[in-house]
Design a protein around this nucleic acid. Structure first.
Lengths: 114, 114
DNA sequence: TTGACACATGCCCATATAGGAATATGATTC
DNA sequence: GAATCATATTCCTATATGGGCATGTGTCAA
C-alpha cells in the first residue's frame, strides 16, 4: 500500500511544508486564495488544492465574500497534535525521570539477555 | 513532484500512524525490534523499516545488546512539532482573542471588497 | 448577454512511499 | 565452521501524492 491519504488526518495534512506555511499566514487573519498564493509564492491552483486538504481535515474554514473566498484558520484541529506531542514532554523536560527510565531500560535489557 | 520524503523531517515521520504507535510503546522503555513488532501486530521487516525512518529523523536511538538491538525514544525531536502547534494555542484557548480576530477579519474583508 | 475576475477541478506525470516476500547481514552458541 | 536467532535490506507492486497546465464554475459589473 502507499502512504495514508493526506486527507485522512491532521498529522498528514501538516506534514506538507507549504500547508504549514499557509496556516502560519492565516494566523494573522482571513485571506483570499490569491493573496495567500502571492504571499507564499505559490500557484493559484496549487494553493487551492492545499486549502482543500486543509479544509477536509478541519484545519481551515471558508467563507464566501463576493467573488472571493476567505479562508480562516480553525486551530482547534491542531490540538490533538499538540497534545500527542505533549505526551512526550516529560522526556525532554525532566532529566531525572529520563535518567530513571534509562536505568530501568538497562535492567530490563540485562534481564532479557539472561 | 511527489510528497516530500518521510525521512526529511519529523512532521513527515509522525504522519504515519504505525510510527506514532511505535513511539508510544517506546515511551515505557527500550524495546527490541521483535517485541515491538509483536506488540503492535506488525511484521519484523515492516517494523524495522519504520524504525529506520524514525532513526533518521532523530526520533529514536538504537543500542546493540547481544543479538538484539534495543530502540529507545529520543523525544527531544518532537519538540519542534509541539512548539509549532503551540504557536496556535491562543486560537483555541482564548475565546476573547479569537472573537477579536474574527471581528478584525470581518473589517479587513469589508475593506477588501470595497 | 458578455466580460472579467476569483477559485476549483480535472488530467497527466514523476516520484516516494508502505507492505509483502525473500534474502542478506550480524552476533551468539555449540 | 555450522546452525540459529535477531535485524536489516533488497526487490517488487499498488497507490497516493504534488505540481504544471488547461478548463470548468460561480459571481459581479457593464
Amino acid at each position: 500500500m502507499a502512504r495514508a491519504a493526506t486527507t485522512s488526518d491532521v498529522f498528514n495534512a501538516i506534514a506538507e511544508p507549504q500547508r504549514r506555511a499557509i496556516l502560519v499566514v492565516l494566523r494573522s487573519g482571513e485571506q483570499p486564495v490569491t493573496e495567500l498564493a502571492q504571499q507564499l509564492g505559490m500557484t493559484q491552483a496549487g494553493t487551492s488544492k492545499h486549502l482543500r486538504v486543509l479544509r477536509e481535515v478541519g484545519l481551515v474554514r471558508d467563507r464566501k465574500l463576493g467573488k472571493q473566498r476567505l479562508y480562516g484558520i480553525e486551530a482547534r484541529a491542531l490540538r490533538p497534535v499538540h497534545e500527542w506531542t505533549g505526551g512526550f514532554e516529560r522526556f525532554w523536560n525532566e532529566s531525572f525521570e529520563r535518567l530513571g527510565a534509562y536505568v530501568q531500560d538497562l535492567k530490563k535489557a540485562r534481564r532479557r539477555s539472561n
